[in-house]
Design a protein around this nucleic acid. Structure first.
Lengths: 230, 230
DNA sequence: CCAAAAGTGTTAAAGGTACACCCATGC
DNA sequence: GCATGGGTGTACCTTTAACACTTTTGG
């Protein structure tokens, strides 16, 4: 072949899977089921196969553990330190996924010994996975300000308070409820449903859904989602 | 070996090299010197070797063509389409570099048939290199707002007008000189030299240099470089 | 009626935008 | 002295930030 004098490498994907559980940002981790470091906590991972792209591989890994398809999944970056895997040279492409925490297949999860961990109570992870998690978190914080990706972590319908709780979890600080509400409503991207969530107050809080179609139309016209000033 | 049943892949790096030439943003391209598509314009690239990281490989490629080390170089993302290289399956990691256009080794450049092209007058590129360039440009536009990377494209000493010209080239729009000046000066990151550049006006314009040490100290204290509002 | 969360109003401070104007100097 | 790009002043407007206030309703 043309490049036959060049070196070849093992390629893996590792997925950071975010979920949001009412007031805490969480990660889905699993107990590694092969050597080396079998039994330690790890990101979901898998090796790239010759007939698939990296995105394909990442979706395959995600579906294997959670049973989910059609979720938000994005490439993060490449990790290529010479000794990141002690067993052999493996270059890993980090991915991060945002999923609705109520939505996964619980049997599959149990089968793989997978478990949700609060983002500030993570166990020790294998290899350089802590670094991959750190980078994912920074990416999430950056992206959530300028793209409507937060909704991926919530159920289809949600209250403004839930949405604010999510942003408070991501940015780890209090956000003024009145100002947050006005800011998000002023974009005109939320559909109010004729339903109230009565769980948290006597008055009840209206449920909303994100209007993705409208977002795409507005974006095509030059609109930018922007929560940078909250 | 542990993973011996897994597939292996060729890995390449491709570098988008930005330069700034007084009023135009430019890219350094070269005529590809091996098959397939020998003779076509291409990004600087090379294959990963077993004893180096991807960053190492990208620096090696950059040094081979420009003679430069210690320049800004950052990973962009991975391109893994099955047929991106018609000759064989090659996964490419895109990088982008910001260099001072006056600083490269001209002999090396000529030797490789390399040439600077204005960003809006690029030739047809091989493979998916146009996509890699597009992604680099979006990254540069995003990053230049929140990190002081613009200075990498300028000489050590520069006038405020030159700096503004650079940002105007990156964002392809006019920036109000008075407001830009105030904004950049208010960060307190520029050292004014007791020298005036007399090339463009009778009055002369003071030269400044970027105070990297101060930037790092301020950043450690929570400061953020921010030109988002200009 | 009251507690508590949902939701609205209001105002001061900060930041962005536009443009008028002064400054220095070689010709 | 005047043309020219460098550099400053300033007034208007929008956005942010903080907090007081009103609304709703099960108990």
């Amino acid at each position: 072949m043309t490049y036959s004098n060049k070196d070849k490498f093992y390629l893996a994907v590792d997925c950071v899977i975010f979920g949001f559980d009412n007031d805490k940002l969480k990660l889905l981790l699993y107990k590694r089921d092969f050597e080396p470091q079998k039994g330690m906590w790890s990101l979901m991972g898998g090796f790239l196969r010759i007939n698939e792209t990296l995105d394909d591989a990442a979706y395959r890994v995600l579906a294997r553990i959670t049973g989910l398809r059609n979720v938000f999944l994005e490439q993060l970056s490449v990790f290529s330190n010479l000794d990141r895997d002690p067993a052999d040279r493996v270059i890993s492409i980090g991915y991060y996924a945002l999923i609705n925490i109520l939505d996964y297949d619980d049997r599959q999860l149990k089968q793989y010994g997978a478990q949700w961990f609060a983002i500030d109570e993570l166990p020790v992870l294998i290899f350089d996975h802590a670094e991959i998690v750190g980078k994912s978190l920074r990416r999430l914080k950056r992206k959530a300000k300028t793209q409507p990706i937060g909704f991926e972590l919530l159920p289809e319908n949600f209250t403004i308070t839930q949405l604010r709780n999510l942003y408070e979890a991501i940015y780890q600080r209090r956000i003024e409820p009145a100002n947050f509400r006005r800011k998000i409503m002023s974009m005109g991207l939320l559909n109010r449903l004729p339903i109230k969530d009565m769980n948290n107050s006597r008055k009840g809080a209206f449920l909303y859904s994100f209007n993705k179609e409208k977002y795409e139309i507005l974006t095509a016209k030059g609109f930018s989602f922007d929560l940078s000033g909250i």
